[in-house]
Write a protein that binds this DNA or RNA. Structure first.
Lengths: 299, 299
DNA sequence: CACACTTACGATATTCGTAAGGATT
DNA sequence: AATCCTTACGAATATCGTAAGTGTG
């Protein structure tokens, strides 16, 4: 089981000599003195235990054993060099892929410009985005289908997390509502208001339900899944709603107003989650860096 | 184009760490101090430009890049080690093949015991024998189908040759012939004898034709190809013949006699021929060694 | 504090280049 | 004589092991 100890430079020297059949020129190609090159070949030969080249003064030729080796080695050396080169590409962000899951609100507000910047910086690294509800995104993360998940609230104990920021909630109401012109509202202001809720599966609803203060609110019998629907209902005067800041873009148009909720206990934490005990790829680290930078710049 | 300079020990260290996920144990497996091993991994990482292992105090795990490399490298390293090992086998005569062409007479007299010895010495090296007439054997050599050719006379200028020995010619005649009991015969003794010749393509005939002295002989109209036929004709009293020593085994039986021809100018040179400018394989060299040994022992 | 990886540093082994040697055309 | 590979030997480099350092459970 005496395994032979060769180095890549040995194999390159061998390959160079196979191609040139000339020690001096092969040595030049390897950036070595002709003498050092000669020694290298000699060492390689003594390692494998057989003469690989026939040196008849004016002619360098392969022995049968040398030919056999050349057939194998040239291919293998190329493969290995390629594998290592590919790795350098990954490390240098000249290749690779990152997959990210993000809540629709985050995907819509933060990611567009982030994706554009990513494209500009690392055009050869594929960035895949899954805009899914919290539980779907976390499932993707759990299965390793994505490197990172951008999510809000929920049970994240099985993951490693970083708090990106917390965002306040806003009251959304019809444009002519009595609170529409206020600069901010408190719980007390909401007494008697009919609040349209999102479906129980949404992260927003789950957080509101946990809040004792929310009990003072009068819940509307309406429950919707899509924020666009919610906006339409509010605009039609069927009630008001409480939504996190990042979703406000749904409530811009005419006939609607949004007022910040001045209650410190109702904020939504936005997390960057990754798998525990699993290092990020270089590309994923780069994405995270860009994300943190963007978040800190926007606050 | 900065190609990375790694060595087999680097790759083995990497493989060991992938398998054990434990520096100390992997170092032992590589017969290295734990410190040297750590440096080795660090060097490898800095060469490819990316962290390959995640060392979290009590846990060694692969980074995504490390995993990618492990998939490729373990396979490639094995292939290369195998190619080099195979070469060692060839060098150590634990594998390989030799092909030899030999004239039928040589094949019949010298080679049987030589083949037996070869089997005993190098059972794992396949030895192929082609017993063919001179021109066929040389064609095989020219095409590289055989490593060596054992032949006699002929035009060998295109090959590299070694003279193994020269063998005398013998007169073969019927048992009751007037020369049958002689200890040796000269050209003069053959005057008036009818000499049965071999076909013009045989190396024996070609040599006899070149010999001026042979002109004194009376040629029989009979021309045969097979020595066995010749023996039968001589036994039947249809003439005598001149044959090289190595073919005498055809003329042993009753009713036949053989007498050495005491003419120094009529001997047959036996050559070992190989291709010019083409080194012999280790196995072929070994065969040549064995052959020379056997030849010098038999003379 | 015991285990496991990293760092420091002197010792050893490899590999390199210059220069001389030898062989062939 | 010119070309080309090998050998000799001191210098530079790389690698190793011992021992001390660091960090975590």
């Amino acid at each position: 089981m005496s395994s032979i100890n060769w180095s890549s430079s040995d194999l390159q020297a061998f390959a160079a000599l196979v191609q040139t059949r000339h020690f001096t020129r092969a040595a030049e190609r390897c950036h070595l003195s002709q003498s050092a090159f000669s020694q290298k070949i000699r060492r390689l030969e003594s390692m494998v235990g057989v003469r690989l080249f026939e040196r008849s003064t004016r002619q360098v030729s392969l022995t049968p054993e040398g030919e056999q080796l050349s057939r194998e080695v040239l291919r293998i050396e190329r493969e290995l060099q390629q594998a290592l080169g590919q790795l350098s590409d990954l490390a240098g962000l000249r290749a690779g892929r990152v997959a990210v899951a993000a809540l629709p609100s985050i995907a819509a507000v933060w990611l567009p410009q982030l994706l554009a910047r990513w494209r500009a910086l690392h055009p050869q690294v594929t960035l895949t985005l899954h805009d899914s509800l919290a539980h779907v995104g976390l499932a993707l993360l759990r299965e390793g289908k994505v490197d990172l998940a951008l999510t809000a609230g929920g049970d994240l104990r099985e993951f490693e997390t970083e708090l990106l920021r917390t965002e306040p909630y806003w009251l959304v109401c019809p444009g002519g509502h009595r609170l529409a012109a206020r600069r901010r509202v408190h719980w007390a202001d909401l007494a008697g208001e009919e609040v349209i809720q999102l479906a129980r599966s949404s992260s927003v609803r789950q957080q509101l339900d946990r809040l004792a203060a929310a009990q003072v609110l009068r819940s509307s019998p309406l429950e919707v899944e899509q924020l666009a629907t919610l906006a339409a209902l509010v605009r039609a005067g069927l009630g008001v709603s409480l939504v996190p800041e990042l979703t406000l873009f749904h409530f811009r148009g005419p006939g609607l107003a949004a007022v910040p909720l001045a209650e410190p206990e109702l904020t939504r934490p936005l997390w960057l989650a990754r798998r525990k005990g699993q290092a990020l790829s270089v590309a994923a680290q780069a994405f995270r860096g860009l994300l943190l930078e963007a978040v800190s710049a926007s606050s």
